[in-house]
Nucleic acid binder design. Sequence first.
DNA 1: AAATGCAATGATATCGCTAACAATTCTTGT
DNA 2: ACAAGAATTGTTAGCGATATCATTGCATTT
Lengths: 345, 345
Amino acid sequence: MAKVKRARIQDVAEKAGVSTMTVSRVMSKDTKVSAAKTALVMEAVNALNYRPNVAARRLAGSQSFLIGLLYFDLDTSYVSKFLLRGLKSCRATGHHLVADEIDDDIEKSIVAVKDLIEVTQVDGIILLPPVCDIPEVLTTLKEANVPFVRIAPDSQLNLSPYICMDDYQAGFEITELLIKQGHTKIGHIIGNPNQGASRLRYQGYLDALRSNQINVPPEYIEQGMFTYDSGFNAAKKMLALKDRPSAIFAANDEMAAGVISAAHMNQLTIPNQLSVTGFDDGHLATTVTPHLTTIRQPIQEMAALAIELIASKKFADASKANSREYRHVLDFEIVERESNAVKGT
Amino acid sequence: MAKVKRARIQDVAEKAGVSTMTVSRVMSKDTKVSAAKTALVMEAVNALNYRPNVAARRLAGSQSFLIGLLYFDLDTSYVSKFLLRGLKSCRATGHHLVADEIDDDIEKSIVAVKDLIEVTQVDGIILLPPVCDIPEVLTTLKEANVPFVRIAPDSQLNLSPYICMDDYQAGFEITELLIKQGHTKIGHIIGNPNQGASRLRYQGYLDALRSNQINVPPEYIEQGMFTYDSGFNAAKKMLALKDRPSAIFAANDEMAAGVISAAHMNQLTIPNQLSVTGFDDGHLATTVTPHLTTIRQPIQEMAALAIELIASKKFADASKANSREYRHVLDFEIVERESNAVKGT
DNA sequence: AAATGCAATGATATCGCTAACAATTCTTGT
DNA sequence: ACAAGAATTGTTAGCGATATCATTGCATTT
């Protein structure tokens, strides 16, 4: 098996009849190169199947081709989904991902962030919730002048570019879905109060009820923590009520799974006697029985976009400039499965 | 804030009074350098806080510092745990992880593997189960002469170095745990038959019963698929038996979660009326109510070891040489939680 | 004591690319 | 039609490490 040597930039330059710099410029899409030369170069690139050598780029250039990712809790499907998709996107641009866990120990967290900046010399950093709302982390990044994107941030929205979905609207729509199915006794389990998304989903729920002139007793609203246990306990209380709800909207899938479990224990069949909806569309949504009607978060799209943003050279300036142009609200999707149904008579 | 330039190999060499090559050799730990010079170099390295520039190493040397990771199903906590830990280990050695999903489309899979080898030029590849048992993938790797480590392989064990845990022993011990608690009517839900671990766990279960002179009717053994649904359905059948088991050992946590759900639906309290044990100790284990007694797989340790193996230069030769020395069986651990109890009278 | 061999160390030439600046071509106004 | 300025393209010099080969030093043999 003859080993074919990878084409170098020089090979491309020769084949296209231009200088290596022209090729370099075409590859990094930055400076303007005439359409004619660009075409010539691209032709040569394709003919030789040329792919720039990342190591050489890093050594010669100012980019490190490294992207930092700060997450909080490893064990959520949110993080791993984001990670896997991010890894894929990175491949396309020749970047690499450096992931770091942040925990409650703020001091340690700051060290990790500084390490990422100084030692690893990342081109940019992605902050997953809830890291994107830790003031100390944000301050450190700002001081170091490192560009960063936040995913679903809850505060200081004009501090940096960010990517999110409309949690409020999703909360509104999924509640309306239940209302349209004839439910009026709709309960809600609020998510972790430390994460802004909880509040938005809750507000969407409230407004959907209000705009349909539906009143629910305060017992229909319980505070959860985004965990299975908290959903389970909240549901236990609600289902023990004399006049129990006919539908429960849990602010994430884990709590919805807890609700289902509680319903099973109370001999309630789902969806006939109780409709349940979740939020996230993680692995769990199709794991529990019956499968959850839920909101699909565009996590993969968020990951791809985040990488793309940091990879684009413009980004570095952008984060300093007016960041209003760098707000990305992606679409969510209601995924209807078997955990909800028209209210029985 | 004055930006401190990172020390280069030359700075270290000057400070230590040796040539750059000596420093290089010390850093890569490979050739022998006298103890005296090594000490000198290390001192300078520490004083200057020197860290080799990975890009330069890659450009000049023969290593790519890239490690490929082939996985099958993204959505298991197995993969994400492995990934996160792997990412961490990579940081320490300056390597990077390139992850690629393999699916049922064998042809596409082979393309992905070849791409990893030829385009990405990885130093080595890690195969997660069940990718590590796909013959076409193994053949391709062998032909390309790329070193690889397999995690928990099921076949052709002397084909390559591998890392695993003793699934048989774990199955044996967790069954014995139930037996010691007085259970004799112990059911088992077998895992996906395409994964060798299923068979081993099952065999451990059988042998534990046998060595305690316990016989169970064939209805106590159901075939599952490692999914929640399959566990749920298997348990439904078993619990509907006239003489139902007092304990069920599911071959993974997801199926165990299904068992719990089925038990709830049958009004059985856990662990009083039914003991349940899982396998994996993933997120789910502490998510369901009650928390699962299960086997903690040393996934993180496996990840760290796999990276370490590939990072060590010796590895390249090793995979060609007699690979018998490269079998690593790591310890597991029984994690006792609340899903099992002494058999009620 | 000279010859031999091996281990430890050093000098030098790249690796493939981009930054910075230089040179060239193309606009455009007059 | 021509100069001035803008846009495009080319030239050169590294980036920071390792491979390769040459050299040195020292123990061992004769």
